[in-house]
């Protein structure tokens, strides 16, 4: 930093939210680190109308996977199902392995595969909250364009690529 430059706290323009990387969304359309969980929505491999809501709790690594209609995932007993595997893989693409590991509070294993380091119990978490957050996420694509001056956006500079 420059000697003349003011302290971080005294800047108006700062990058507070770390950048995310683009990724293929077909398999896992939604991932987030929120509510103390890595959680998201995974498309069913067999039924195009069905999705699974999967989550892993930070710290305890408690695992949950069920359909959006709250039916438990048949593949999840004791070890992570393929939906949870996809969720973690895609979260790593989107946020980077370090950020996901830090959030879940897990050491990154030597092979870099986080899912192998997670040994949580199966513990059903409610799918409704995550699913409604996903639906809310989708509604942004329905918001019409704006040609208002939007001076507010001056606080939000362009995104940069993930380093």
């Amino acid at each position: 930093m420059d000697a003349d430059e003011a302290a971080w706290e005294r800047h108006s323009v700062l990058r507070v939210v770390p950048p995310v990387a683009p990724r293929k969304l077909a398999k896992v359309p939604f991932v987030e680190l929120a509510d103390g969980r890595l959680q998201g929505v995974v498309s069913s491999g067999s039924d195009i109308e069905r999705v699974y809501v999967s989550s892993i709790a930070a710290g305890s690594h408690a695992m949950s996977c069920s359909t959006n209609n709250n039916r438990p995932c048949g593949g999840l007993h004791g070890t992570a199902c393929k939906h949870l595997g996809s969720l973690v893989d895609e979260a790593v693409v989107q946020y980077g392995v370090d950020r996901v590991a830090r959030y879940l509070r897990v050491e990154v294993p030597e092979d870099g595969r986080l899912i192998g380091a997670l040994r949580g119990q199966v513990e059903r978490a409610p799918a409704a909250v995550v699913f409604s957050r996903f639906l809310r996420h989708l509604t942004y694509l329905e918001v019409p364009d704006s040609t208002e001056p939007l001076a507010e956006m001056q606080w939000f500079p362009t995104s940069q690529a993930v380093r």
């Binding site: 683009p22 990724r23 989107q94 694509l141 364009d145 208002e148 001056p149 956006m153 995104s159």
Partner: peptide, 11 residues
């Protein structure tokens, strides 16, 4: 200025 809503994975 023209603006659109988006989601964070569109970058």
């Amino acid at each position: 200025s023209v603006a659109a809503a988006k989601v964070e994975t569109i970058v």
